[in-house]
Design a protein around this nucleic acid. Sequence first.
DNA 1: ATCCCACCCGTAAACGTTTACAGACACGGT
DNA 2: ACCGTGTCTGTAAACGTTTACGGGTGGGAT
Lengths: 354, 354
Amino acid sequence: MTEGPTINTIARRAGVSIASVSRVLNGLPTREETVRRVLSAAEELGYVPNSVARSLKNRRTNQVAFAMADIGNPVYLAMVREIQPVLRAAGYRLLLHSTDADVADELDVLRGLGERYVDGLIMSPLRVTDEHLRALAAARAPVVVIGSVPEETGVDNVRADSRTGVRLALDHLYGLGRRRIAFVNGPPDTVPGAARAAAYREALDALGLPYDENLVEVGDFYRAEGATAVRALLDRAADVDALMCANDLIALGALDVLRRAGRRVPEDVAVVGMDDTYLAGVAWPALTSVSLGSERRGRAAAELLLDRLENGQRQARVVTVEPRLAVRASTAGVRDGTDDVPGAGEGTEGEESP
Amino acid sequence: MTEGPTINTIARRAGVSIASVSRVLNGLPTREETVRRVLSAAEELGYVPNSVARSLKNRRTNQVAFAMADIGNPVYLAMVREIQPVLRAAGYRLLLHSTDADVADELDVLRGLGERYVDGLIMSPLRVTDEHLRALAAARAPVVVIGSVPEETGVDNVRADSRTGVRLALDHLYGLGRRRIAFVNGPPDTVPGAARAAAYREALDALGLPYDENLVEVGDFYRAEGATAVRALLDRAADVDALMCANDLIALGALDVLRRAGRRVPEDVAVVGMDDTYLAGVAWPALTSVSLGSERRGRAAAELLLDRLENGQRQARVVTVEPRLAVRASTAGVRDGTDDVPGAGEGTEGEESP
DNA sequence: ATCCCACCCGTAAACGTTTACAGACACGGT
DNA sequence: ACCGTGTCTGTAAACGTTTACGGGTGGGAT
């Protein structure tokens, strides 16, 4: 932990100027002899360039941040797992911010861009307030938002398509003969909550099914709240034959409650989750789930950001990822849960640890 | 995205020197009047200090990195979730490295410390080679290793206690009357693989049970490999009445296979996982699992590192975290899976996303 | 009036790089 | 012998901070 060698140390040892050292280390044309001297001096001293000094001069840090509510959520996790390798391949390090969906925290992150500790930011806010939009407009570095943001904001934007997603699920359930399809949502003041609620109504309309508010329950995007909501739902509308859950965690809670209530899945009640996280494959019965393409969204966001970092003046772009329905035992009546790997071939599954 | 104001801009606008600006912004004693002028100039200009320049001068970045094999693994995830808030509270940002357990990558990270882009590193290598030890000794910044490393290395070290952990599990199974307790391990050349293999033998000895190599299967720390291993095991030793799995992912694979094979869990075969990740609560039946305290280890590592950052010359410390057994349906015959929340009260469960 | 001291503040150097610029030198052509 | 050209390298400034040092000012004590 002694003070490391700098370009100066090398220059002295090699008997050249620091400019020459820098040139050699950056591969600029230099006389053979000088190159040798510098390289061997650097080698002997175990020189490693100081990235902070380099960043100061170059005005780029080769760091990018990803800000999301909570990395414990499998959706964000899936994104990180895609974002990381893309950035890494391009020579960027990844910084993580967990904001707990706290608006003030998110704004802090945005303002923090002024500190220039990263070259860009990928952010996936649960709620998008006016303050967010203002902060985005004032951001001192390129930002890519995962989640819908008005076009005028002029920010690169990666979107899911809950509308089509919910539609896929309801069509599927309808095709299975289900007519009392309930909807268990998270907070409707969140971006995904609002989108999915609207999508549910629309899909019912399209199928010619009536909207019955007894079939709608609002909770939060967690397992425990999902369970609570489904309990209430069963009390209120005993004849439900299908549950559309606004994410996989809610669906997991639903499975627990249904099991306890003695309802068979899928025979009595079919269950569909959303996000198609790897939890869908772990659950039993394995969960049919609408993939909103977290992996693809993560990758797209990373690529948009990289592109923007090379071409700052480009017009803002909006990428929308197509949803897919992954059918598994919780609706299909297949015997067990290993038929389809969740994440739709985008590679999940964890590795071990000490 | 215009070039932001610097301390110079403020100095000019406030009619003072940059030294005064710096002093004011750092809260050093300054005349009332000057303070006002500087602050209001800074305010008007929307000044944000450049953290790169500051880092260069101060020789600290307020960043810390965490390097692990794969953040998709629930164990590392649990660690990140604990590490992040601890660091954040101390004013550090968190940088993530996924190394895929690649030794070369891990060494790169260690050497990269010379670039000074972080003040310290928490690292959880799956394998610890001699090269690791050399690189650790030569590291240019404080490192905390999660996973066992020889004392002489002189590195802060947080350890799990697989030995006691496996012992707890086997005692539990023995107490339930199980005598044909198989062991499904991951690669024995990894730190946890080796430790758990040894622990299994020891625990058998202590219980007076014979070591039967037909009851031992080696695969990898994933679900699919766990499944394969258990299939082989059932073929070879049809009379197993309990499975000790070296981690939760293996155990999930085991549950699948047992279900397909028509073996009831826990009546016919009891299953114990390891790490007590939140997957244990998602599985059905809910998985009894040995907690090796990923959360506590993560927190301990973060605290050790912070302490070391304040007190560089302190003697290296070793922290060992006590294992705990979380008993659930896969051994206890409890009817459903929501009795005990995994992570032993250390707070898991994800949140939702767009 | 002189001296001293306290208090503020500005100048300048430093952190470790990159890079514009110009000087030194060799060489070939006239 | 001179000039031009080209190649290589060193000097110095710059990136945006922090901070040691010393100078200026004003007030109180003598």
